[in-house]
Simulated assay, not measured.
Amino acid sequence: MSSVLYDEPGPVARRRERIGSVVGAVLIIALLALAFRYADGRGLFGADRWDVLYDPPKNQSAEDVWRSMVVRGLGATLRAAVVAAPLALVLGLLLAMWRTTRIAWLRLPATAVIELFRGLPVLLMMLFALLGFGWDAFASVVFGLTVYNMAIIAEILRAGLASLPKGQTEAAYAIGLSRAQTLLLVQLPQAVRTMLPSLIAQLVVLLKDSSLGFVVGYPELLKAMQNNAQYFGNTYYVALFVAGAGIYLVVNLSLTRLAIWLQGRSTRTSATITADPTLNPAAGAAGGGVRPPR
């Protein structure tokens, strides 16, 4: 079966791919072995470097350490992401609709806003909100995450709208729908479904960018790891940051699996609608007529 983007590779190309995969795997294994050997030589695998996760010193319990990272740190990270993500989605949707208007002079402000916030670093916008507006750390983090990601989401949705066949719009106009009705009822639902994996991936980026909040004093997960490392000592930096990285991986991989599941469900739904003559008259006509009503 041919790929959508590429032709099916021939025997020579497949042989080269297998050789490249083997060589790449050997190089990765060699690099990992060197890294483990280097870490072992520095004593990073000793029990005294990891007991902070199960038997920490200074009269603290493992429950205290994990609560500080999972409940307070990850909780603060998710709280900022839960507030910023809907705001970025709504504002990005409005910007995408604004930029797709047919009036050129109306498109210019939306284009300027998107290009401005897409080109500025997230951390710079957090610092601007903190120092310029005088907001607290939480509001500054939400502001930086929102304005940056709304610009990216607007471009994602604009690309989804541009990818739709022009016949969709012409058919909507033919049955009497206005420009706004066509955009809201016909184009946007299809664009969102098409770009859903990209939207979920951008939400993962938003969640990861919340780690920049430690610069403005927001007590998110990275800040919680840093506080623990400073309290227990530099000996436990590696263990604490490995634990924090594991927490980030669990959350981000869960969101990635959600994107894959949503994409599969959307694909199955589209295939069902396309193949069912009662839902798609064109399929019935191709097969000899529309199924009569029961």
Score class of each variant (00 low, 15 high):
V65D: 03
L255A: 07
F241W: 09
V122C: 09
N59A: 06
R99G: 09
N227L: 14
L249C: 06
A35L: 12
A13E: 15
T278N: 13
L212V: 12
M1T: 08
V70Q: 08
V147M: 08
G284P: 12
N280S: 09
E17P: 01
L74N: 05
Q226D: 14
A282W: 13
F133L: 15
S210Y: 09
D40F: 00
Q202R: 14
P292N: 05
V186H: 05
A239M: 01
L32D: 13
T256C: 01
M125H: 02
L91E: 02
A96K: 05
L131F: 15
W50D: 02
I19W: 10
S270D: 09
R42Y: 10
A243I: 02
F45D: 00
A13K: 09
V52H: 00
L123T: 08
L279E: 11
G160V: 02
L240N: 01
R179L: 11
G41I: 07
F128V: 14
D7E: 15
M150I: 03
G73W: 12
N280M: 10
L94G: 06
A171I: 07
I29Y: 05
I247M: 12
G246F: 03
A33L: 12
A245C: 08
V205G: 13
I200D: 05
N59P: 02
R42L: 11
M97G: 11
L184M: 10
T274M: 13
Y231H: 04
S61I: 07
T77L: 06
E220V: 15
L177I: 04
I247F: 01
S3E: 07
I19S: 04
A80D: 08
V122M: 09
